[in-house]
Simulated assay, not measured.
Amino acid sequence: MSSSDIITIARQTVWVIVKTSVPLLLVSMVVGLIISLFQTLTSIQEQTLTFVPKLIAILIGIMVMGTWILNEIVAFMNTLWGSFSQYIL
């Protein structure tokens, strides 16, 4: 196994992590922005107000996008394990 193989595997791993986490992070950011605007407009200064809506939004996002996320991770792992024999030298 050469260093270029290791770098390629690391690059692919980071790309899968980014690709599968960005949708949930975007959901969290959008909900946080909406709650922040609501707090600004109503002058509510409760710091814990964003926690529950973000948690609910992320759980809904996992329910909606969970199959796609799992399929991406499984496809990557199948590709990685499928070429495992090339790396054992």
Rank of each mutant, 00 (worst) to 15 (best):
F51R: 13
W81C: 00
Q86S: 14
V31C: 04
V14C: 13
V14Y: 15
I62R: 13
K54P: 03
L26W: 10
W81V: 09
S28P: 01
S3M: 09
W15F: 14
Y87P: 04
Q39D: 02
L24N: 03
T20C: 08
V30H: 08
P53T: 03
A10W: 10
V52M: 15
F51N: 10
I56C: 05
L55F: 15
D5Y: 14
K54W: 03
L89D: 08
Q45K: 08
S36E: 05
Q47M: 09
P23D: 00
I62F: 15
L59F: 11
N78T: 00
T50W: 05
S2G: 07
Q45F: 10
L80M: 04
T20D: 03
I7V: 12
I6P: 10
L25Q: 05
S36Y: 10
I17A: 14
I35K: 01
Q39G: 05
S43W: 02
V27W: 04
L37F: 11
S3I: 07
S43H: 08
G32N: 00
I35V: 12
I6S: 12
V31G: 02
V74Y: 08
S83W: 00
M1Y: 12
V18N: 11
F51C: 09
I44Q: 04
G61H: 02
L37V: 11
S85V: 00
E72Y: 06
I7H: 15
V22T: 10
L59M: 14
M77C: 12
R11E: 11
V18P: 11
V30S: 10
F84D: 00
L70N: 13
F84T: 06
Q45W: 06
E72H: 06
M1Q: 02
W81P: 00
S21A: 13
V16N: 06
A10N: 09
M1D: 12
Q39C: 04
Q45Y: 12
V22G: 02
I69K: 06
T67M: 10
F76Y: 04
L49D: 01
E46I: 08
I73Y: 02
M63Q: 14
L26F: 06
V74D: 05
S21Y: 09
S85I: 00
L26T: 11
L37A: 08
I60E: 07
